[in-house]
């Protein structure tokens, strides 16, 4: 589904990613761990198509297509989803309006008619329940005045609404208490299918108690320095990132 080959990327001329290789197949959950500043968010941004990230070498192939010149909305319409580490507040745009626009833009791309009001309402209710997003929030402006937990839950809610093929969740667990994390993890688990895949970017091992990854990768100074099964996460938790430093 996703194949990253020798990816080098810079932000404002500074090289952050220094040759990443990553292979994700349908049905898999990958965890990418690493200390602050290792390039985790840059990798997520590069896959989603953020313009400040300049790809200087290598390529990202997603469902057989090179993402090089594809704009973010087209990537999204082809099933790519980025859960933000810091979800953006959009004053004046309600979640309802935002999601309806997103769903209809995605449907238009697939040549479908706009969703009917009743169908949309049904979908909203169903997915809100799945992630425990209070219905009071959906009439409010996107993320405006939301608590940290509410913002993250809203990310999972949007993911549930859009049903992506490949979801990249950038530190979705940061700033969450254990109950909120369970809800987020539960959302991820429930949405898992044999034809989709998830990349969890996380600093801590905590989330991986609730979402069991098939692979764990350690990102360090712009490179994936270690890849293994879920036991790697436990080892990291125990020994800390200094251990990696020594290993490298």
């Amino acid at each position: 589904m996703l194949e990253i080959k020798n990816l080098h990327a810079s932000i404002e001329g500074k090289e952050i990613l220094k040759g990443i290789d990553l292979h994700v197949k349908a049905g898999e959950i990958h965890a990418i761990m690493g200390p602050n500043g290792s390039g985790k968010s840059t990798l997520a941004a590069a896959i989603a198509g953020r313009d400040i990230v300049e790809i200087t070498e290598g390529e990202i192939i997603y469902i057989g297509e090179n993402l090089k010149d594809m704009n973010p909305e087209e990537r999204a319409r082809k099933g790519l989803f980025l859960g933000f580490q810091y979800p953006v507040e959009i004053p004046g745009v309600s979640i309802v309006n935002f999601m309806k626009t997103a769903i209809n833009e995605n449907r238009k791309f697939k040549g479908l008619e706009p969703i009917s009001a009743s169908e949309f309402l049904k979908l909203m209710n169903e997915k809100q329940e799945l992630v425990g997003l209070h219905s009071k929030l959906t009439n409010r402006s996107v993320n405006e005045g939301f608590s940290g937990g509410e913002k993250k839950r809203n990310e999972i809610f949007q993911m549930a609404m859009l049903e992506p093929l490949l979801a990249i969740l950038d530190e979705t667990d940061s700033g969450l208490d254990i109950d909120a994390m369970k809800i987020v993890a539960n959302g991820v688990n429930k949405l898992k299918r044999s034809d989709n895949a998830t990349i969890l970017i996380t600093h801590y091992q905590r989330l991986l108690d609730f979402v069991i990854p098939d692979f764990v990768h350690v990102l360090y100074k712009g490179r994936i320095v270690k890849s293994s099964g879920k036991e790697l996460a436990l080892e990291l938790e125990e020994k800390g990132y200094e251990w990696i430093e020594e290993e490298v």
């Binding site: 973010p72 999204a76 004046g92 935002f98 997103a102 859009l162």
Partner: peptide, 30 residues
């Protein structure tokens, strides 16, 4: 227009023109 918000919307599949429109509209709606 807020570039962060534009990118956020685009990652949900909302085209750049529609995203700009939503932001302007929200601005006017106050």
């Amino acid at each position: 227009l807020d570039n962060e918000a534009l990118f956020y919307m685009r990652t949900r599949g909302i085209g750049v023109n529609e995203a700009r429109h939503l932001l302007m509209y929200a601005f006017a709606n106050e």
